[in-house]
Every structure is written in structure tokens, then in C-alpha cells.
């Protein structure tokens, strides 16, 4: 009899500790959808790149002395990336808010605020750093840079949400670093990370926490 009460006490302590310091309503399914958006974006980027390299071969001579044609391409890729990010953030926010409402967790509390701040710091630094790379025409390192900084953002944020996010972050950092050694295959690594990894980890978290 007594030991039942102690067991309740322990589980109450654990519950309070995690609920007060972590935002646990993060939706796993939104991770899966973010991965799908990233793959769609990668396909568009791939088509656009193909188009570029075709005309590139034909018109190389004509272009070589003209203004850098790459600006149009970089801008298009940037627009695709921004659309993917916006779609992923909106989906993540909507699904997490719905999950929080269901479980009775406050959406805007200390834990979710800390989660957001700690996720955004490395993310914005990485974003600005990527723009600087584009500014200096080092655009072949942009894919690696976004992967590494996104991974760091996940590792940093994992203290304030489901612990699994940490392992996804580590995976992103690793393939980001590996991709630096395969210049020219940035888009494939990008699709592997933002597409495939999101889908894998998202569905793992979905089956672990979302379903019931």
C-alpha cells in the first residue's frame, strides 16, 4: 500500500520536472511533413539546376564575358529554400499548438519560450553566415553550412523539448561536415538531411509520443 504512494510521488516529481522545463507537445508528424516539403523543394531546385547547366553548356561562350548569370539561379534557389522553411514552420506551429491543446499544456509558457529562443540563436547565425557565403560567391559551402547550423540549433534546443531532437541534431552536424568533402553534391546531402532525416526522426517521434 505504502509503496504505491511512493511510486506516485516519484512519477509526480518526474512529470513536474519535465513539464516545467520542457515543451513536450512538439509534434512528430510535423517533422515528417517538413521532410516532405524539403524533398519537394529539392526536386524543384534540382530541375532548376539542370536547366542551368544545360544552357550553361550551350551558351558558355556567350556568357563568360557578361554579368554573372548565377545571380538569377542563386536567387531562385533561395526562394525555394525560404518557401520550404515557411511551410515547415507554419505546419510545425499549427500541429504543435493542436497537440498542446489536446494534452492541456500551455502553448506559450517558459518552456516553449526557451525552446524557441535557444533554437533560433544558432539558426539565425547560420542563416546570416550562409548569406555571407553567397555574398562572397562561396555558394558551394551553403548546403553544408545550413546542415551544420541546423544541427547545432537542434542540439541546443533539445534541452527544452523531447530529448530525441538531440540525436537528430547530431546526425545533421555529421552529414553537414561530411558534405564539405563532396563539393557539388550539396543538394543531395541537403535532401538527405532536411528531407530523409526529418521523415525518419519525425516518424520515430510520432510513434513514440503522438499516437494514442
Amino acid at each position: 500500500m505504502e509503496s504505491n504512494k511512493y511510486l506516485d510521488d516519484i512519477s509526480e516529481i518526474k512529470n513536474m520536472m519535465s513539464r516545467s522545463s520542457r515543451f513536450i507537445s512538439l509534434s512528430g508528424f510535423s517533422g515528417v511533413l517538413a521532410g516532405v516539403y524539403a524533398l519537394i523543394g529539392a526536386v524543384f531546385a534540382y530541375l532548376r539546376l539542370q536547366e542551368f547547366s544545360l544552357t550553361d553548356k550551350v551558351e558558355y561562350e556567350r556568357r563568360i564575358n557578361s554579368a554573372p548569370m548565377e545571380t538569377g539561379l542563386v536567387l531562385d534557389l533561395l526562394i525555394i529554400a525560404i518557401l520550404v522553411i515557411i511551410a515547415a514552420i507554419v505546419t510545425g506551429a499549427i500541429l504543435s499548438i493542436r497537440k498542446a491543446k489536446k494534452s492541456g499544456e500551455k502553448i506559450w509558457n517558459q518552456a516553449s519560450r526557451r525552446l524557441l529562443v535557444n533554437f533560433c540563436i544558432p539558426l539565425f547565425v547560420g542563416g546570416i553566415f550562409s548569406l555571407v557565403l553567397i555574398q562572397y560567391n562561396i555558394s558551394w559551402l551553403v548546403a553544408s553550412t545550413t546542415l551544420v547550423f541546423y544541427g547545432l540549433a537542434c542540439i541546443n534546443a533539445s534541452k527544452y523539448t523531447l530529448g530525441d531532437v538531440r540525436y537528430m541534431g547530431i546526425a545533421f552536424v555529421l552529414i553537414g561536415l561530411i558534405s564539405t568533402q563532396f563539393i557539388g553534391y550539396g543538394l543531395y546531402f541537403w535532401a538527405l538531411g532536411f528531407g530523409v532525416f526529418h521523415i525518419i526522426y519525425g516518424s520515430m517521434m510520432y510513434f513514440k509520443y503522438d499516437r494514442d
Binding site: 510521488d9 509526480e12 516529481i13 518526474k14 513536474m16 520536472m17 516545467s20
Partner: peptide, 8 residues
């Protein structure tokens, strides 16, 4: 118990 857990 809850107060202490949160403050830990």
C-alpha cells in the same frame, strides 16, 4: 512535491 520539482 510539485513546487520542489519545478524549482529543482
Amino acid at each position: 512535491l510539485g513546487i520542489m520539482s519545478v524549482l529543482m
